[in-house]
Design a protein around this nucleic acid. Structure first.
Lengths: 223, 223
DNA sequence: GGCAAGCTGTCATCAAGCTGTCAGATTCGG
DNA sequence: CCGAATCTGACAGCTTGATGACAGCTTGCC
C-alpha cells in the first residue's frame, strides 16, 4: 500500500514508518499540513494516517478539506485527546477510523488493514481465490494448501492484484506501489516482478493477464 | 516480558524493578501519570504494574483512560488504601488484578505471571510444544524429557516466541523485549541470541523461522 | 578477596537470498 | 511480416542474517 503518515512527533512517526516499511508498504512522511497537502497532490495514496495535532493547523481541517474536495482516500485518525467530541468530529468529517494515543503498532496495523479492506469491499483479511489463499495480515500465501514463499516486492504486487481483482492496473500504478515517488528502478522492473509472481503462482486460479499497452489485470481463472 | 512500573514511592519501585529485572524482564519506571503515558505511547508493554496513588493524578484515571482507548494491556493495580471501594473500582475499570500494600514480592510475581498468562489464554504455566516443555514459572525447559539450561536472555526470547506462536516478531520488538527502550546493545545481538537459542533447542519441535526483512516466527514443527 | 565458570555483547567473516538490469527471445497488434 | 511491447533467464551487487571467536563482566563459591 501507499501510505501517507502525517505526524509531527518524530519518534512516533519513525516507529510507524519503520513498521509499515518493513511490511513492504511505501510510505511518505509529512510533518505539517502544508507538507501533507503537497504529497496528496503528487500521488494517490491507499491510506492516510493523520495526527490531529499538527503545528500549523489542526489535522481536522486537513481532513475536512480533503473530503470537501471529494478525495475519498481512507483516513485513519490519530489523536492524543481523550474527548469523545473529537472522535465524533473526526468520524463526522469523514475519517474511516480513529485511534487514541498511546496506541500499539500492531493495533494500528490491524486498523489500517481493516480500513483499507473496507475500501476495497473485501470482508476478511484472508482472501480465497479458488485454490489460492492469501492472508494479508500474516503475509502468508497458500496454493493448494502448500505454502508459497513470496519476497516483499512479490507480496506487495500480489496484494495489489488481489485487492483490485478484475481492475486494470497500469504499469505506473504498480511501479509507484513498489517504489513510491522516489523510485529508482527501471520500468522493466515491474515486468520482472510480474513474471516472478506468475512463476511462483503457477497452477493457481488467479490469472494475471497482460493487457498490451494498458497494464495488467488479475482475474479468477474460469470466470 | 516488558513491564511498566508506575510507582512513585522510591523504595517500593526499586524493589519491584530489581526483582523483575533479575528475572530477566525488561522494566521501565514511571513515577507520574504523565510519565506513564509517555512510556505507554512509546512501546507496547506486556504488563503494567500501577500504583493508584500518584502525585499528578490518580492511577485510577490512568487506568480508565487506557481502557477508554481500548488499550487492553494487562494491568496489575497496587494500592495502599484500605477501602474496599477502591478494589471494586479498579476491577470495574478494567484492572486484571490488584494487590494491597504492603505486599510480598513473590506474591506480586505470582500475580503478574497469572495475569499475563490469562492474557495469552494459557491455562497453565507449563506449555508443551511437541517434545518441548517449558515451565514459565519455574523457568525450566525440557527437551525430550532432558532439561535444557537457558540463560536469562535466551529464556526471555523463548518466552516471547512461545507466547506468540505463529506470529511474526520483528527484530525491534524482540530487541525491546531483551533490552527495553534504553537498550545499548547492537541490533546484531538479537540475531546472536536467536542463534544461541536455536542451537540449544536443536531437535525440538519448535522451529524458529527467519522471515527475511520482517523478523522471526516460531512455529510448531510439522504443521 | 580471589578464582573459576558462565553470561554478554561485539566483531569479522561467511552464507543466503533479494534486487534490478540487461540482452535475447517471444508475442502481439496491425 | 514488422516493430513495439513484453517475457524471462542469467548475473552481479547488495542487503540481511548466521555463526564462531573473543574479551569484559558478573556471579557464585571458596
Amino acid at each position: 500500500m501507499r501510505i501517507l503518515v502525517v505526524e509531527d512527533t518524530e519518534d512516533v512517526a519513525d516507529a510507524i514508518l519503520a513498521h509499515f516499511q518493513r511490511q513492504g508498504h511505501v510510505c511518505e512522511h509529512a510533518t505539517t499540513r502544508e507538507d501533507a497537502e503537497h504529497f496528496l497532490g503528487l500521488d494517490p495514496f491507499d491510506l492516510v494516517i493523520l495526527d490531529l495535532n499538527l503545528p500549523d493547523g489542526s489535522g481536522l481541517d486537513l481532513l475536512k478539506q480533503l473530503r470537501a474536495a471529494k478525495n475519498m482516500v481512507p483516513v485513519l485518525v490519530l489523536t492524543a485527546r481523550m474527548h469523545v467530541d473529537d472522535k465524533i468530529d473526526a468520524l463526522d468529517f469523514g475519517a474511516d477510523d480513529y485511534l487514541v494515543k498511546p496506541f500499539d503498532l500492531r493495533e494500528l496495523e490491524a486498523r489500517a488493514r481493516a480500513v483499507s479492506r473496507r475500501q476495497h469491499g473485501v470482508a476478511d483479511a484472508v482472501t480465497e481465490i479458488g485454490n489460492l489463499r492469501c492472508n494479508l495480515s500474516a503475509r502468508t500465501v497458500d496454493l493448494d494448501a502448500r505454502e508459497v514463499e513470496l519476497t516483499r516486492r512479490e507480496f506487495v504486487l500480489l496484494e495489489a492484484f488481489i485487492s483490485n481483482l478484475g481492475r486494470v492496473l497500469d504499469k505506473d500504478d504498480l511501479y509507484s506501489r513498489l517504489y513510491g515517488l522516489t523510485g529508482e528502478a527501471g520500468l522493466n522492473a515491474v515486468e520482472v516482478y510480474v513474471a516472478r509472481l506468475r512463476k511462483k503462482l503457477e497452477g493457481a486460479d488467479l490469472e494475471i493477464k497482460t493487457l498490451r499497452g494498458l497494464g495488467y489485470q488479475a482475474i479468477k481463472r474460469g470466470t
